[in-house]
Design a protein around this nucleic acid. Sequence first.
DNA 1: CAATATGTAATTTGATCATATTGTCGCCGC
DNA 2: GCGGCGACAATATGATCAAATTACATATTG
Lengths: 228, 228
Amino acid sequence: MQRSVQTTSTTAPAMPAHAQVYLRLRDMVLYGDLTPGQAVTIQGLTERLSAGMTPVREAIRRLISQGALESRGNRRVSVPLLTAADISEIIVAREWLDPYLTRQAMTCLTAADIDALTRLDRALDGAIRQGDLRAYLHLNHQFHLHIYKLAQSPILSDLAEGLWLRFGPSMRVLCGRMGTQNLPDNHKQTLIAMQAGDADAAAAAIQADVRQGMDQLRASLSEGADYE
Amino acid sequence: MQRSVQTTSTTAPAMPAHAQVYLRLRDMVLYGDLTPGQAVTIQGLTERLSAGMTPVREAIRRLISQGALESRGNRRVSVPLLTAADISEIIVAREWLDPYLTRQAMTCLTAADIDALTRLDRALDGAIRQGDLRAYLHLNHQFHLHIYKLAQSPILSDLAEGLWLRFGPSMRVLCGRMGTQNLPDNHKQTLIAMQAGDADAAAAAIQADVRQGMDQLRASLSEGADYE
DNA sequence: CAATATGTAATTTGATCATATTGTCGCCGC
DNA sequence: GCGGCGACAATATGATCAAATTACATATTG
């Protein structure tokens, strides 16, 4: 037997294996290592992640309960294929949640916070220039996650983060289609509004960002029919 | 060893044990068999539910990811103690979600649906008269769940249902304090509005119901300090 | 004669359990 | 009061059992 996920010196001081597996699997969902509709097997993941069966089972179960994976009736698990109706629901939810969390974040925003967001956005620009799709997805996600964190609203942030898990795989497909050169970046308006201390403008900018991205997603879904 | 969760003739034709354990544990959270702050141990549940360890582990993990349980750092799990800030977030979320889902439900509401809701509310009245706290909690939950289902918005319904898991234990404490005689029932206005086909009024009635219940919860929490 | 449908066998995969391992907490002696 | 020691609970593994899908072979029909 392999020496499992044994802490390779510095990697994981005290993080249980199921948590590590969860994080890795979640990232696979978020950043497109799994395509919509793809089957997810326990044994496949035990090999791919060289982890035991129990941690993988728990991670999968956790992601199912978050909507990142779906359990087809007969003990088979797969990455959900979003319908247009699903996307519409996610749009409704995000168009409400994201501006709300942005306003919350604005109530206690420091210059350092804006700096951190600006750095993230600059890194995002770099990823776009280099056509690094995975970095783009990651940094875009980080940008919004950072706002959620600043809002200091753990429950609402949980809801918002959960939505990302649902559209992650489809977003990857969309961006893959658009080509790596003309990926959108609508964060500039948000940063300007934040620097001006204008909560209304910041919320509106975030809402526009969300709507733009999600609308593209829905359009891509309906025109591309099913991707496989 | 006991004969496990073997299908006792008719009970479970093809439901895996982990699903059964999850449902039972979820109901324990929702209807107050667990009190806020209470510790939840795996081995305790394997005995109480006479189930194996693996199904219990998975059910607990699932409920943690939904916010129904929380994992304190050191491999200890407990029922969350809500803070006033937590309640405020839940209020914000429900005041938006529940009216929205009500409006959605109104778009395709049949007379049979209203009948079903009316029956649920009548049963709720009965539970109040008899002072049956558990039935009250269950039927009140069912009433709102039914509206969610009618909205045919699986993702937003998921979000709303998840919130119930968070305040379930605290709600039980609140209702236990209020005494079993004067439990609130604000569903009448909703039913009237639905019969009139007035979506605005129905949404407003639901919002009032949510706000009233949740405000009491917050008040109970802040005055009662911590309950144990 | 060929092609499709059907029923069975085999392999793959999921579910559950018993057990070994590890980390945490409480206690006792120093 | 502090550090090691023992008990307990959680984590993780591999094995075992059961289910389901797949493949294949046979039979039947056009």
